[in-house]
Amino acid sequence: MVAIAVAVAALAALPQTVDAAQLRIDSITGIWTDAEGAPVDGLGTTRIDWGVPLTAAGSSAYAFEGAAPAAIGPFAPGETFDIGTFFHYNFPIDDQLLNGATLDLVIAGRVFPEPAATGSAFLVEQALRFDHQETFNLDDPCPGGTANGIGANVAGCADIVTIGTALPRSEAFVRDDQTFLFSLTGFEGGEASFLTSEATINSVPLTASFLVVEGAADVPVPASLPLLASLIGALGSFGWLRKRAAQS
């Protein structure tokens, strides 16, 4: 029954019915549009600065650099990927304390029902709020109860940056009768906050993912599948007839 074994192996090798949606990103821009607390310079750009500098290092700042000067991906549903890098410049400044700032993101890309497809364009606009805790360097303990002079607080109490929860971090869009949900997942590793030591520049990737939530596209059944199934059946019948003839 070698012929049947070969036919079964060929059937197993055919593509199975799976969700084949993929996403690629063509461009990512991020502009700072709002700030609270200290007066800032740079709204409407990729970097904001605040505070009168107390050293030659300059003022404190937030900046964003998109991860897609060229297309990146493809990414599968549920896969986490970088959309850019968030920078925090924590330098000694006067008492002008930032409370938070908002980054408006515009993410353009394409979704694909299958790898070889051209893809359908999408555009997602989302805002991320960053809550800022500007610490006093000589406090001991530092915020959170950690001791001054060790770890991230080695040069004084580290500043704390946290992604706020007031703004939605997911947006749905529809392409080719499918509904996709694009979500900003936070800092790398799923973290919601991080510490920046005094007199340092801290950088961390911002991440995202997507899901197909309705009308998922399936890989079509190959036209040759019914023919192959018929061939397996015919070979099975032929083998059974040969066995009956041998027993006669």
Rank of each mutant, 00 (worst) to 15 (best):
A3I: 06
A7Y: 02
A7K: 01
V8K: 14
T17K: 13
A20D: 12
A21K: 04
R24M: 15
S27P: 06
I28E: 09
G30I: 08
G30K: 07
T33Q: 05
T33G: 00
A35R: 05
A38K: 00
P39D: 11
D41Q: 13
G42V: 02
G44L: 01
T46I: 05
T46S: 14
I48S: 05
D49F: 08
V52T: 15
L54A: 06
T55P: 02
S60K: 02
Y62S: 06
A63Y: 00
G66C: 05
P69A: 02
I72E: 09
G73Q: 11
P77Q: 11
E79S: 13
F86Y: 11
F86P: 00
F86V: 01
Y89A: 06
F91S: 06
D94P: 04
L97T: 13
T102F: 01
L105K: 03
E114A: 14
E114T: 12
P115N: 09
A116L: 11
T118P: 00
T118M: 04
A121I: 11
F122H: 05
V124K: 00
Q126E: 12
H132V: 15
Q133W: 01
Q133F: 10
D140N: 15
P141Y: 06
A147P: 01
N148P: 08
G151H: 02
A152P: 04
N153W: 01
V154A: 15
G156P: 03
G156V: 01
C157W: 01
V161A: 03
T162S: 09
I163S: 02
I163L: 15
I163Q: 13
G164Q: 07
A166V: 12
R169V: 05
R169I: 07
E171H: 11
F180R: 01
F180G: 02
L184T: 04
T185Q: 07
G186E: 04
G190S: 02
E191M: 12
T196S: 15
T196Q: 12
S197R: 12
E198V: 14
E198I: 07
A199R: 15
A199K: 10
S203G: 07
V204I: 15
V204C: 06
V204L: 14
P205K: 14
S209W: 03
F210W: 06
L211G: 05
V212G: 07
V212R: 10
V213S: 12
G215L: 10
A217R: 14
V219L: 15
P220W: 08
P222V: 03
P222Q: 06
S224A: 14
P226S: 06
A229N: 12
I232S: 07
I232W: 09
I232D: 05
G233Y: 02
G233M: 08
F238Q: 13
G239T: 07
G239Q: 09
L241N: 10
R244T: 09
A245P: 03
A245K: 14
A246C: 02
A246E: 13
S248I: 13
